[in-house]
Amino acid sequence: SSYVCVECNFLTKRYDALSEHNLKYHPGEENFKLTMVKRNNQTIFEQTIN
């Protein structure tokens, strides 16, 4: 599966890399929402900020 930060167009295969991205680029933000999307037999988790 892949993880994408929709706000930044940041894409990674690792959830911990997304967490690091959030700490660096969205410090103090807590209203993240992950949406699971299936595309071409791949699972993509799209992160948006509410």
Rank of each mutant, 00 (worst) to 15 (best):
R14F: 15
K38T: 07
Q42G: 09
C5F: 00
N9T: 09
H21K: 00
Y3H: 06
T48F: 06
L34T: 15
T35F: 03
C5I: 00
E46K: 09
C5E: 00
C5A: 00
N41Q: 12
L11C: 12
I44K: 07
E30F: 15
L34S: 13
L18N: 02
F10Y: 04
H26S: 00
E30M: 06
F10M: 10
T35V: 14
L23H: 08
L11A: 07
E20N: 02
A17R: 08
L18W: 04
N22F: 00
E20K: 05
V6E: 03
S19G: 11
Y3Q: 02
D16W: 09
N31D: 14
T48G: 12
Q42F: 04
V37Q: 10
N50E: 04
E7F: 05
K13I: 07
R39M: 10
L11K: 11
N41C: 13
E7V: 09
S1E: 11
L34I: 01
I44Q: 04
Y15I: 03
L34E: 14
E7N: 11
E46T: 04
N31Y: 03
E20M: 04
E7G: 14
N31V: 02
E7I: 10
F45Q: 13
C8R: 00
F32E: 03
S19C: 10
D16E: 11
E29R: 11
Y3C: 02
T43E: 15
L34W: 05
K13W: 12
I44N: 07
C8T: 01
T35C: 09
V6F: 08
M36V: 07
K33P: 08
T48V: 12
N31T: 09
N9D: 06
T12L: 07
F32H: 06
L18S: 01
K24F: 06
R14G: 14
D16P: 14
K13V: 11
L23Q: 10
K24S: 12
Y15G: 08
L34A: 10
E20W: 01
S19L: 09
V37T: 06
N50D: 14
Q42R: 08
I44A: 10
S2C: 03
C5M: 00
A17W: 08
A17V: 13
R14H: 12
T12M: 13
Q42S: 13
R39H: 14
I49D: 15
Y15W: 05
T48R: 11
S2V: 02
K33D: 08
K13A: 14
Y3F: 11
I49M: 05
H21N: 00
K33I: 06
K38A: 08
N40A: 11
V4G: 09
S2Q: 05
V6P: 03
E30G: 12
F10E: 06
N41T: 07
A17D: 15
S19E: 14
K13S: 14
D16V: 10
L34N: 05
N40D: 13
I44M: 11
S1C: 06
K33T: 03
P27A: 07
T12D: 10
N9Y: 04
N40S: 09
S19Y: 06
M36C: 13
E20P: 06
S1T: 08
N22E: 01
N9M: 05
Q42Y: 13
M36I: 05
E46W: 01
N9L: 09
E30D: 06
E20R: 06
Y25F: 14
K38H: 09
N9V: 03
T35K: 14
Y3L: 08
T43S: 15
V6M: 05
S19A: 03
N31H: 04
E7Y: 10
L18M: 10
N9E: 04
I44S: 13
Y3A: 02
L18D: 02
V4H: 15
A17I: 13
P27R: 11
S2H: 06
L18A: 02
A17F: 14
S19I: 02
P27E: 11
S1R: 01
I49S: 07
N40P: 04
K38N: 12
M36H: 08
N50F: 07
E20T: 07
I49L: 09
S1A: 02
N40I: 05
V6C: 09
Q47D: 01
G28H: 12
N41M: 07
K24M: 07
A17Y: 13
K33H: 05
F45I: 15
K13H: 14
I44P: 01
